[in-house]
Design a binder for these strands. Structure first.
Length: 229
DNA sequence: AACTTATCCAACCGCCGCTAC
DNA sequence: AGTAGCGGCGGTTGGATAAGT
């Protein structure tokens, strides 16, 4: 392996520790679990191997298709891609891509018309600030840099200059703004179903503990376009 | 059977952004 | 404002194993 392999006993200790104290506070995990591992190793072992509901084995055809499409949209953002594949970890997806898909697709691209491949643009999902909480940014799993770029390039920010929240009048307005920004107005049906929780979240203006995020919404839009084109 | 090469994938590393002080 | 410590991410490494000769 790339490092020192985990033993069954270490796995057991880590599992027990997480069950007892919960996820997070990784810096304390080695001490609490009595493991001679660094915080990162513990976290990685949990996320990639020990966490419940991790799907193992070969990728299904639909999963592979999804990976290819998502990679076109997102680039090497494995954690985001994995987030769309229940039970799969970022490491799994990355490994699968590197072992199977990158070579295959490179070979395909080489044989394809070069003009065609020029049209493929990586769309980075652009998180929008709705509130000023950094908690929300964390929940987006996105770097602030991207958001700064979004704000600078697009002028879209839902924060007032003084940092106070500026709530958009309605969901439709808000979504319309995003579609407009993506140049997708007219392409995307405005009567699409919002994910559960989204509606309440938007109307209440609450966001920090939300299940939804803009990455997801924009990704859905991208995917919709991609699948329907 | 013995050796070489290719593939897979778990683990590590370095960097980044955020938070608290 | 500066900084240390943290969680998280993507890239890379290297040992195990399969496939090929």
């Amino acid at each position: 392996m790339g490092g020192v392999a985990w033993t069954e006993e270490e796995d057991h200790l880590l599992k027990k520790c997480i069950q007892q104290y919960g996820e997070g506070k990784w810096h304390r995990v080695p001490l609490l679990a009595g493991l001679n591992r660094c915080r990162k190793s513990c976290r990685l072992r949990w996320l990639n191997y020990l966490r419940p509901n991790i799907k193992r084995g070969n990728f299904a055809e639909e999963e592979v298709e999804m990976i290819v499409k998502l990679h076109k949209l997102l680039g090497n953002r494995w954690s985001l891609i994995a987030g769309r594949l229940p039970g799969r970890t970022a490491n799994d997806v990355k490994n699968y891509w590197n072992c199977h898909l990158s070579k295959k697709l490179n070979a395909q691209e080489a044989s394809e018309d070069k003009e065609l491949s020029k049209d493929v643009q990586i769309i980075r999902p652009q998180a929008r600030n709705i509130g000023s909480t950094s908690m929300k940014r964390r929940s987006l799993g996105e770097s602030q840099t991207d958001q700064v770029v979004v704000q600078q390039e697009s002028g879209i920010t839902l924060d007032d200059a003084d940092g106070k929240n500026h709530m958009i009048e309605s969901q439709q307005d808000m979504i319309y703004s995003c579609l407009d920004q993506q140049g997708m107005v007219g392409d995307f049906p405005m009567d699409f179903q919002l994910e559960e929780g989204f509606e309440a979240m938007v109307s209440s203006g609450e966001g920090s503990s939300s299940q939804w995020n803009w990455d997801d919404l924009l990704l859905d839009m991208d995917l919709y376009n991609d699948f329907s084109s």
